[in-house]
């Protein structure tokens, strides 16, 4: 086929309204939050002492950090669907910086012998399992949204939405989890998010070709 012939046909198809990427991601976001909210309501719920916890420093700081990170990754993930677009990593990097600062402060405030108990926490295994469970809907929904786009780096795009989905799960889990020490968050939340990132990268490689 000659290229001019193809162009002739493409031009004739130009009137078809393309799908809206913003709409695809808005739907994915709604599905992600609805799924996590449902799983949270059925299997988790806020921790019993949530009213008292809000008065502390560590609990609101923990929730704020993961929330900022989730929002930051959402911005990055959307751009990965657009070829050649720059990646706005500022907000996500800011959240990581906030966590790093909290860790440093925690190490300064706690006596050395309290470090390990704070890091180990009360139930790290539940954390590792719950974050992927709460974020699974976000991963499926955001992979579908990415397929509406044109990710030129499929594994990277998959990894980014895996990280995003882990962060969505983490926001909900943070409200349930009684461990507020930044030492706990930086260890177990990061591990859970790394797991989701790996799953996302693999899924991206397999499912995001176009």
């Amino acid at each position: 086929m000659k290229t001019e012939d193809l162009i002739h046909a493409l031009a004739a198809d130009g009137a078809v309204r393309p799908v809206s990427l913003a709409r695809a991601f808005a739907i994915a976001g709604a599905v992600a939050v609805a799924y996590a909210g449902l799983v949270f309501a059925i299997g988790y719920g806020p921790r019993p002492d949530v009213a008292a916890a809000i008065e502390t420093v560590r609990f609101p700081l923990k929730v704020l950090t993961v929330l900022l990170f989730a929002l930051g990754m959402a911005r990055v993930a959307g751009r990965l669907a657009q070829p050649g677009a720059s990646l706005p990593v500022g907000l996500a990097a800011g959240a990581v910086g906030l966590l790093a600062a909290s860790v440093a402060l925690e190490l300064f405030l706690l006596p050395r012998e309290a470090w390990m108990p704070a890091l180990v926490g009360t139930n790290s295994l539940l954390c590792l399992m719950s974050i992927p469970l709460l974020g699974a809907g976000a991963l499926a929904a955001s992979l579908l949204a990415l397929r509406q786009g044109a990710p030129t780096r499929p594994a990277l795009a998959g990894a980014a939405v895996g990280l995003l989905s882990g962060a969505v799960g983490a926001v909900f889990y943070a409200v349930h989890c009684p461990d507020d020490s930044p030492l706990f968050v930086v260890t177990w939340y990061s591990l859970a998010l790394a797991l989701m990132t790996g799953v996302g990268a693999l899924a991206g490689r397999l499912a995001l070709r176009w």
């Binding site: 193809l6 493409l10 198809d13 393309p18 070829p83 050649g84 176009w210």
Partner: peptide, 26 residues
């Protein structure tokens, strides 16, 4: 060209278009 056509909604209209074209082509 076929990909550019089918994915034309992924161009951000407030950004330069040649980096977008080049990225799809690569």
């Amino acid at each position: 060209l076929l990909a550019i056509h089918l994915k034309r909604h992924t161009w951000r209209t407030d950004e330069p278009i040649t980096p977008w074209l080049a990225a799809i082509t690569r």
